[in-house]
């Protein structure tokens, strides 16, 4: 597992830290050098609010290496409130209850571990909005 890469990306993975383009004001996630909307230099950094909705999803029954213990799990395209579309696991939800358009919120969870003795990678997932009284 690439420790250095995950370490470099920790702010975006732990807390959805992206960018808001200083030129066209569009939001960008993940952060990049050039704004995909206007072609100017991207930035500065902007932490996404974490809210969004399920744009599309699928349920993984045959997981890739490193995710075997979690299957079955749902992977979704989540449309963030700020606009960007991100790919992430859904958590704290039964597959039968997932609907396109369902409001979700970001949580920081364990993504995978490098065996019993390796590092634990944490990052964003999305869950249904917590019902509050």
């Amino acid at each position: 597992m690439d420790i250095a890469r995950h370490w470099r990306l920790r702010r975006q993975r732990y807390a959805l830290v992206g960018e808001q383009c200083g030129h066209c004001r569009e939001y960008i996630f993940p952060p990049r050098d050039i704004c995909p909307h206007c072609g100017e230099e991207a930035g500065p950094v902007h932490a996404m609010c974490g809210r969004g909705e399920v744009y599309s999803f699928t349920v993984v029954h045959e997981p890739p290496t490193g995710y075997e213990t979690q299957a079955p799990y749902a992977v979704a395209l989540v449309k963030l409130a700020e606009g960007p579309l991100v790919t992430a696991q859904l958590t704290d939800v039964d597959a039968a209850d997932i609907k396109i358009g369902m409001p979700v919120e970001m949580v920081t969870r364990r993504l995978r571990t490098d065996g019993a003795e390796g590092v634990i990678q944490y990052g964003y997932k999305f869950r249904p909005h917590l019902a509050v009284s």
Partner: peptide, 13 residues
């Protein structure tokens, strides 16, 4: 806790 939770993820929330 769920499969992707531990003290770190719970403390973060």
């Amino acid at each position: 806790p769920g499969l992707d939770e531990d003290v770190i993820t719970m403390a973060v929330e």
